[in-house]
Design a protein around this nucleic acid. Structure first.
Lengths: 302, 302
DNA sequence: AATTATTCATCGAATAATACGAAGGATTAT
DNA sequence: ATAATCCTTCGTATTATTCGATGAATAATT
């Protein structure tokens, strides 16, 4: 794939003709025509067809143009990102927002790779409702937002989602509460006291739908926006609660609770939301790389 | 942005050194070294740092590598797509699946551009539950799936979502039913008979949450997987029903119903799901292009 | 129907980018 | 210490690209 040829093709397609493009690029028409010809023979299919005295993209040309558009957009984005890159040795600030529905321990695991850069980093962590964080992100007062759901379409913000990972959920109960449950999982949930996440979270929707599908009707004794608070109530036996399976052993030891069961039919997803299509901030790059390499898979879980 | 330089940088980063890369690319080390040096001066930041007698990516280098990876992936994907492109003149088959929750008229508007290619096209339309369609897609028996929601994470299919557009929803009622409603919108919905979409659709979740937030409690007299059937019931006054605002005038004339009101707080989204990250099938390209150019915005609506 | 102004395609000559060999500095292994 | 790797710098040779001139096709104008 010769990217120089592709670049000329892209310019000509944008300009709508060899002549117009040649002015913009400061090259002669015959150069462009020749280079595009080379690209066409290399790809084995014509990209332009004559329409009157103008050129028009063929269907294959339209496919190629779509790719070219994306490729050169990425190229100039790369240039922008690195042109004024922070000098090495200077302190880098990384401002990250965490939606309050995301478990703290998950947030830590996701963000932690950002602290392991070669350059010194100062992390500024902000926790809030997702829509407030997105506003801050749009105003460039945040570099990244960690959330449990992609950007809602209602929030008219031009930002990009990057799926970092997911996890099934486990059901937990304090030892005393567990003794009161007679039946096996998941039947034991029917009529059991239960703590659920706030109703504007994705996982609460999935949980309620799952319970409904299984005809299980627990008594909902509490609804929490903050999962840490929910676990604290659960620790003292207020009710059964759920948490990501990847944190199962951690939750058990930290809160002294036991696992009732687990399912992959309910799941939590985690997203990094940023203004650029691709990461430019070194900390964001580190987070993405780490997530891609199986943040959760490496641990013995799921 | 010199893509040749970037390509060498990419090769060297992958191979983990100039020497190893030089063997794979059949070039001498000093060539690679020099070309990368040019890239670095052009970008104004070093991409590699010496680590012992080896090279290591700098933070900026990692950013660049991420971009390069994506760029060259796209490049080879483009080559694959066009290398054995269907000969022009031959009949092209386009197999598209439509999730049954998507309104027919929306599906038509989304798919219609695919029929306007220069080459003759035969469209094979399949309508079914989303998960069945995704299975067909994964088996390459479908080229594209049109759905009202992105791929659920539960469906472990490697596919790509492309958001085609969205619309707010309008509330409709037959003239007779409307006369029985005394209050203004949206208060009139309280206690009114209502027809709702099936409970596994995204819009039904948003509708119920919206009603709940406004403390409106309609009598749900019917639940429909197929929106066309829902509208048929609504036509005869069985209950209030919703539809995308972009179809408002069409629904009014076709079913002889009247608009109670509309909101953007409830919305429907439409997605094209395909196996490739970018479209290669000419029909898919046409659909994407048309959607990007504002499929809904051009019509007088929203 | 002939004219004019576009447009793209083709051909050798000029130019700029790229690749290589030789030599040198730096780091690790023997 | 000495050899083996590895990356870099320099000057030159090769290659690919670009250009001007020319020809052929198309569509609007006279």
């Amino acid at each position: 794939m010769n990217f120089k040829h592709l670049g000329y093709f892209w310019q000509v397609a944008k300009a709508g003709g060899v002549a117009r493009a040649s002015e913009q690029v400061h090259l002669t028409p015959q150069t462009l025509s020749g280079q595009i010809g080379l690209l066409e023979t290399q790809l084995g299919t014509p990209l332009f067809a004559k329409k009157g005295r103008n050129l028009e993209l063929t269907d294959a040309g339209r496919v190629a143009f779509g790719y070219a558009q994306e490729i050169f957009d990425l190229g100039s984005e790369l240039e922008d990102s690195l042109r004024n890159y922070p000098m090495r040795g200077r302190l880098i600030e990384f401002r990250v927002g965490v939606a309050d529905a995301v478990p703290k321990s998950i947030a830590y695991r996701l963000i932690e790779p950002a602290t392991r850069l070669t350059v010194p980093v100062r992390i500024v962590c902000r926790e809030w409702k997702l829509d407030s964080l997105l506003t801050e992100l749009a105003a460039h007062r945040l570099d990244l937002v960690i959330a449990g759901a992609p950007i809602p379409a209602a929030a008219r913000v031009r930002a990009y989602n990057h799926r970092l990972g997911d996890s099934g959920v486990s059901f937990f109960a304090s030892p005393e509460l567990r003794k009161t449950l007679k039946r096996a999982f998941p039947a034991c949930l029917d009529g059991a006291p239960m703590l659920v996440p706030g109703d504007d979270t994705a996982v609460s929707t999935r949980l309620l739908r799952w319970l409904d599908a299984k005809s299980l009707r627990p008594r909902v004794v509490g609804e929490f926006d903050d999962t840490a608070l929910m676990k604290a109530f659960g620790q003292h036996g207020s009710g059964v609660f759920i948490g990501p399976t990847v944190l199962e052993s951690e939750i058990k030891t930290q809160y002294g609770v036991e696992t009732l069961g687990r399912t992959r039919e309910i799941y939590e997803e985690f997203f990094a939301i940023s203004m650029e299509r691709r990461a430019t901030h070194p900390c964001v790059v580190a987070i993405h790389e780490s997530a891609r390499d199986g943040l959760f898979r490496t641990k013995k879980s799921v």
